[in-house]
Simulated scan of single mutants.
Amino acid sequence: MSAVLRRGKGIELKSRGEIEAMRASGLVVARALAAVAEKAVPGVSTGELDAVADQVIRDAGAVPSFKGYHGFPGSICASVNERVVHGIPSKKEIVQEGDLISVDCGAILDGWHGDSAVTLAVGEISEADRALSEATKASMWAGIEQVRAGNKLTDISHAVEQAALAAAKADGREYGIIAEYGGHGIGTQMHMEPFLPNLGKPGRGPKLKVGMAIAVEPMLTLGTADTDELDDAWTVVTADGSRAAHWEHTVAITEEGPWVLTQAE
């Protein structure tokens, strides 16, 4: 789940054992998202997808971290087409052939949080939508490569931005890079310091250290980078109605480099 900009002091450092505990929660999230991906076919409701994720999380002895978070009603965020993030799942919302849906999911296991998001194709999607999702995913992985001890926070931001721009050039398109929502620290809480922008100059912000954990989550659009919030006070949509994609992984900094805690085994 993307964080809005927060200011504060201190970034939580975890021991190796605590990071391994976060890995366990991350694997629960990975399994939940895999189960949702199998069910994301034309005719299913986003409410049904929410129930699938909820069941997988609870069967693992974990708790959905989104449900009840500041009043959020679902166990996943289900954001279809022009919805960027924080879409509320509903039994009344039926996905259709050609839809693009981003599913964001979090779980708490033994007090530790995992948070991840994928963008799913419902049936056959357009080439533009496919390229958008792939560009967003590539931007995420470029950012993850910079989640290393000794780097500065915005080295991640810069890598995400440059990968998005490179994909846009290769695809012959312009992608909007969402600026007001971004990644975040994670551990004993879902949203912690630092806030991670998805664009910016490198070499700024706090120095990254072993034991930090960060959720890297770019959001790109096929049009504007401007967004609006719907009356439900949650759902964020593109201001021009263009489609959006969202990918996210929780990543820990270890002596060996980035450890993607929410990647399936």
Rank of each mutant, 00 (worst) to 15 (best):
K67I: 04
A53V: 06
R16F: 08
G8W: 09
T46N: 06
E18R: 00
G10A: 02
V44A: 09
D54G: 15
S65D: 03
L100G: 10
L100M: 14
V85N: 07
P42K: 07
N81S: 10
H70V: 14
A3L: 14
V28I: 06
A30Q: 08
G74V: 08
A78Q: 05
E18Y: 00
L100A: 12
L27Q: 15
S25T: 01
E20C: 11
E18T: 02
K9A: 15
A32S: 10
S75Q: 08
A21H: 08
L33C: 08
G8C: 08
F66Y: 12
S75A: 15
K67D: 02
V4I: 13
A37K: 15
K91R: 13
G10L: 03
N81M: 09
Q96F: 12
A32W: 04
L33D: 02
A40P: 01
G10K: 01
E93A: 11
A62V: 03
R58Y: 02
G43V: 04
L5V: 14
V63M: 09
A35D: 03
H86R: 01
A51V: 08
V29G: 10
A35L: 04
K39G: 08
G74N: 11
P42I: 04
A37T: 10
L27C: 09
I19W: 00
V63H: 11
A21E: 07
S102H: 06
S25W: 01
